[in-house]
Nucleic acid binder design. Structure first.
Lengths: 145, 145
DNA sequence: TATTTTTTGTTTCATTTGAAACTAAATGTC
DNA sequence: GACATTTAGTTTCAAATGAAACAAAAAATA
């Protein structure tokens, strides 16, 4: 029995380790926190989606998402549009200012990732991607304990 | 450029997904939260260590660790001992009650992990373990951005 | 040895978080 | 159509969090 090697625990430690440095960097350089960065990334790749969709994609709490969206709209990084089919929801997308921000932040983020990934072999990188996809497929099917 | 596939982001989502179900379960069944569970796991495998060491191993904040240790001592799951060489620090270990708790929780945790891992092939499991170790080695060397 | 600096851990306090309650709209049922 | 139920998102409020300041001991330096 190997509890140090307990997978949820190991992944949490690893994820924290990887996020720590980069999170401070975003805050210092661009004044955006981790929640904001995550929502921005999602909207960068998925324009015109609702808070609900963001929740699904990010696994973040809906309250946190609600507040993050509010702050990003206040900072003028996002545009809000009324949803055509549902008056409760709003569609969000990056504003011009938001896209400008992302053009500044993304190279930084990618450089960090590259630094990390270049220490893996081609095989290892492929395996990593494969494993992440597989886990997501497994976990999206059954979320029960 | 693939930001959805940005590694820190993917790992965070995955880690949250994996932890979600199991965290609720610990709380409901045993009245311990994620911080407490993590500290307990660490002390299960590393008896007689200080808060500092726990911080290194878990990547958790020192304030959080301080409070978690306090709560676990209050709940009588841990014994505190004065550190032989450093009067500022204390050594912690599971109490009898703590070990009893762990004997109840661990099978549950391992069953959850097993459910997850049995959906991977032998190769995939090995690759997973290899990648986690490798990342930890990489990240422990250089923690600069 | 005295003094400064660093390290370990705690406390304070302002911020972040998320469960629960809520609003308002959409969907389902009669 | 009227009423009940579900869904999307927000607000409230109590708890968790962590940065900064702190205390106390250890280590480094003079």
């Amino acid at each position: 029995m190997e509890l140090n090697d307990f997978l949820p625990y190991q992944l949490s430690v690893l994820s924290l380790k990887i996020s720590k440095g980069i999170a401070e960097h975003y805050q210092d350089q661009f004044g955006i926190n981790i929640s904001q960065w995550r929502v921005l990334v999602i909207l960068y790749k998925n324009p015109d989606i609702t808070a609900k969709k963001i929740a699904q994609l990010s696994q973040m709490d809906k309250v946190r998402i609600s507040r993050t969206l509010k702050s990003l709209v206040q900072k003028k990084y996002l545009n809000q549009a009324t949803h055509p089919l549902d008056a409760r929801a709003k569609n969000y997308e990056l504003s011009e200012r938001g896209r400008y921000l992302m053009r500044a932040v993304i190279p930084d983020a990618l450089r960090y990732e590259e630094e990390l990934l270049k220490k893996l072999s081609d095989d290892e990188r492929q395996q990593l991607q494969h494993l992440i996809s597989k886990f997501n497929r497994i976990l999206d099917r059954e979320d029960s304990f």
